[in-house]
Design a protein around this nucleic acid. Structure first.
Lengths: 243, 243
DNA sequence: GCGAAATCTTTACACTGTCAATATTGCGTC
DNA sequence: GACGCAATATTGACAGTGTAAAGATTTCGC
């Protein structure tokens, strides 16, 4: 669209004037050195602005439209500005994935809290899992489909770890046994891997439209959520649970 | 590397001389009009050559390195040559995915045939599934990770459909009931979706290295294959199978 | 207040997919 | 057997991408 990067100038004009912004108390306490990680920039909280812009671009244009330059455009800065905050594309995607994992964890936690009966509690987590992915397919794609993620980044590592810990914990509660942090029996590991694999696989297949075939053959009006419920609760018939 | 596209000339020289190639009987029967879909090109079987080149590039440079131009370079043709055979990148990826699905189906079928006992038969398919993905992670990525696939292409549609049919059939045999092609009960659908989701999810998590955490906490020397086996055979403890 | 360091912009380069124009070759037809 | 057409490949161009280097600008520590 248009000639390359002619929007930069107009974008700069569109942004709130810098002098005004920095003259007002728009930025929170700049004194403590600890707060440096929060808003350490002299032009405004660009890091946060970029992440929010990225989320907007992702929802609007999908995973394919999420480029460094598109995010910079959306935030109204030059195309090279993100580099200084995230290093490269992998950095931006990783930080965005961390945001996603936090949203994701929060959604599952609140869903679990809202459940009353044991049955509801057991189903709340997987349902929230799938619901989040359906509501934010782009974000889920960033978190689980992209190869360009750097888990050595603390924020991403932590957020993803928390997600796993919540799952392991839920499995432990269901099995009514303590799951220690550093050692697992084969059966415990199998239970965790089974639960995670099942929900994750179901979500990916659903998002890719690969379950349409099955859903279309089921009794009229069966939703994906109902199918998931049946997967989790229906008795397992046959010689073995696996395919 | 180097200046853009200067390799074109050398690549052309490297290829077997055209006159020689077309003068020899290198190409199979060119008479029948039906064979047009097989080798309809006047310079050699470029379509096949491109697909093989793509497979090579994929194994060597991974999914990120698989570009139209890289494939063209690998095959020793100009960068625009693939366009005429596959339309665009989506076309090439889709045809390559079809190749992958056929390999995949063949691997599972032969693995099932080799099984003797009922237990082996039940485990052969998921094991072959994971084994293929581990042996060909790039191809598996093309098949299940890429968003750019066009399932309206007959070759891809057929190959993917065959994969699903094999799965549904295996589940039917295990449940000792006939699974009709056009209608499923909720429990049948749940069994199919459960099996597929579990194995697919396990594979993706394994390939993404997300199971390292679990594997590291299991008894010394537990392999991914052993974990999968436990997932499929271990008794399900707790109030519910799901997380 | 001032210098240094952090932050942003500009410029440049190699690479990508895709399109249009051109060249080349093989095949059916006369 | 030669000719013309259509299929096949090359060349060139263009917009877009990530990334690096160099130049501007502003904030912060002293």
């Amino acid at each position: 669209m248009g000639k390359s990067e002619t929007r930069t100038e107009t974008a700069r004009a569109a942004r709130t004037p810098r002098k005004t912004l920095s003259a007002t108390g728009a930025r929170a306490a700049r004194r403590p050195a600890v707060a440096k990680a929060e808003t350490p920039y002299h032009h405004g909280a660009l890091r946060e602005a970029l992440l929010q812009a990225a989320e907007r671009v992702l929802e609007r244009d999908g995973l394919a439209g999420l480029t460094l330059r598109a995010v910079a455009r959306e935030a109204g800065v030059s195309h090279a500005a993100p580099t200084h905050h995230f290093g490269d594309l992998t950095g931006l995607l990783s930080e965005l994935a961390a945001v996603g994992f936090r949203q994701f964890n929060a959604a599952m936690a609140s869903s679990c809290d809202a459940a009353a009966t044991p049955l509801e509690r057991a189903l709340a987590r997987p349902k929230a899992y799938v619901a989040y992915a359906q509501a934010h397919p782009g974000m889920y794609g960033i978190m689980f489909r992209t190869e360009r993620l750097d888990y050595s980044r603390p924020s991403l590592h932590e957020a993803a770890e928390a997600s796993f810990a919540g799952l392991a914990n839920a499995i432990g509660m269901m099995r009514q046994e303590q799951i220690s942090g550093d050692a697992l029996t084969l059966n415990q590991g199998a239970a965790i891997a089974r639960a995670w694999s099942m929900v994750h696989g179901f979500t990916m297949l659903l998002l890719d439209g690969r379950l349409e075939d099955i859903l279309g053959r089921l009794p009229e009006g069966t939703t994906a959520e109902r199918l998931l419920e049946a997967m989790l609760t229906a008795p397992i018939t046959g010689k073995l649970p696996g395919p």
